[in-house]
Simulated assay, not measured.
Amino acid sequence: MKNGSLIIFSCLILMFSCTSKQANPTQETTSGNPIFEGWYADPEGIIFDDKYWVYPTYSAPYEEQVFMDAFSSTDLINWTKHERIVDTASVKWINRAMWAPAIVKKDNKYFLFFAGNDIQNNDEYGGIGIAVADKPEGPFKDYLGKPLIDKFHNGAQPIDQFVFKDKDGSYYIYYGGWKHCNVAKLNKDFTGLVPFDDGSLYKEVTPENYVEGPFMFIKDNKYYFMWSEGGWGGPDYFVAYAIADSPFGPFKRIGRILQQDPKIATGAGHHSVIHEPKSDKWYIVYHRRPVTETDGNHRETCIDEMQFDENGYIKPVIITKEGVRGNPLK
C-alpha cells in the first residue's frame, strides 16, 4: 500500500506540474514589455533575412552613452543581445551622446546611422555619422571618418535620423531636433548628398507640433510620416502622424496614435515600425518610462501591435505589459 500510494502521489504531482504550465501560456506566447532587459531608448526595428532586429540607444548620461548594443529575434519573444556593435573607439570623432540609430542594408552592406556629441551650434563638432559592417550584428566601423551632416540647416539640430528607401530606389534621410525636420537625398554610396532640382541639399518638411524622431513607411502607395511631440523626459511625449502622396509632403498632421498610460508607463515615444509581410502584421517599437522610475534615462524598449481602420488611418495604439504574440519568421 505504501508503494502504491507513493506511485499515485507521484502521478498527481506530475499531472499538476503539466497543468500549471498549460494554465499560464502567456509567458511563452507573448513578448512581454519591455522586450529585453536594460535601459534602452529610440529603438529602430527592422527585419533582415529571417530575424527581427532592434537597434536602440543605450539610455544613460551622455558621457556614458558611448556605445550601442543590438538585439535579434526569430519570433519577437526570445531576444539575443549583441553587445557593443559600435562604439567611440571605432568612431573617434564622437566623445559623448551616441544615440538614435537608423539602419539600412544596401549592396550586401549594413549602414548604421547615428548622432553624436549633441552639438548645440555650428561651432561645435559632431552631428550625424555612418558606420558600416558586413553583418547586422557588426562589428561596425566608421564609414566616413567624419559626420555626414554637421551643421544646423533650417533650424534643425543634426540628430534623430531615419533613412528611407523610396519606391524608385532613392534613399532619403529625414532628421532633426529642435522642432525642425529636414529631408536630404543620399548619393549612391552614402558618402554625401545629392542636390534637389532647385539646387538645395536640405528641404524642410516640418509638420505641425513636430519635435523630433521622424519615421516614414509606405502603405497602399501612401507615405506615412511619423514623429514625436512633447518633451522626452515627461508625460507629454507622444507619436503623431500624417499621410501624403509624396516623400516631401506636405505632411498635414492627422493626430496622435501613441501616448502614455499612467497605470503602465509614461513618456511613450521615439518609435519605429516593423511590417511583417507574410502575416501582414504591423508593429510599433518604442520606448517608455516605467511609472516606478524618476530618472530620465530609465527608459525601456517595448513593442505593441499597430492597426489601421478601413480608410487607412492608424488606430490609437494601446500600450501593454503583455506586448505582442509570437510571430516566427521561418
Rank of each mutant, 00 (worst) to 15 (best):
M1I: 11
M1N: 13
S5F: 14
I7C: 03
I8G: 02
F9T: 15
C11H: 11
M15F: 14
F16D: 09
S17K: 11
K21T: 13
P25S: 06
T30H: 12
G32I: 12
A41S: 12
A41C: 10
D42E: 02
D42Y: 01
P43A: 13
I46K: 13
I47Q: 09
F48W: 01
F48D: 06
D50I: 04
Y52W: 08
W53L: 04
V54Y: 02
S59V: 00
F67V: 06
F71H: 15
F71V: 02
N78Y: 05
K81F: 02
H82L: 10
I85H: 04
I85Y: 01
D87I: 08
A89G: 10
N95D: 14
N95W: 13
A97K: 06
V104C: 09
K105Q: 13
K106G: 05
N108D: 14
Y110H: 08
L112D: 06
L112Y: 13
F114H: 04
A115W: 01
N117D: 01
Q120T: 11
K135C: 07
Y143M: 05
K146E: 05
L148E: 01
F152W: 15
N154S: 05
I159N: 00
I159C: 04
V163P: 08
D168P: 12
S170A: 15
Y174D: 02
W178E: 14
H180K: 13
C181E: 15
L186S: 07
T191D: 03
G192D: 00
L193P: 00
P195N: 08
P195E: 09
D198M: 08
S200F: 07
Y202C: 00
V205C: 06
T206M: 05
N209K: 14
Y210D: 09
Y210K: 01
Y210S: 01
E212V: 03
P214I: 05
M216S: 08
M216T: 00
Y223I: 07
M226E: 00
S228I: 01
W232A: 03
G233C: 01
P235T: 14
D236C: 06
D236M: 10
F238M: 13
V239A: 14
A240V: 05
D245N: 13
P247F: 04
F248S: 01
F248M: 15
I257Q: 00
Q259T: 07
D261E: 08
D261A: 03
P262G: 13
K263M: 04
A268H: 07
P277R: 09
H287G: 06
H287A: 03
P290S: 04
E293L: 06
N297I: 06
E300F: 06
E300N: 10
E300P: 03
E300L: 12
T301D: 05
C302Q: 02
F308Q: 11
E310P: 00
N311Y: 14
G312T: 08
Y313E: 14
I314S: 05
K315W: 10
V317E: 06
I319P: 05
N327S: 15
K330N: 13
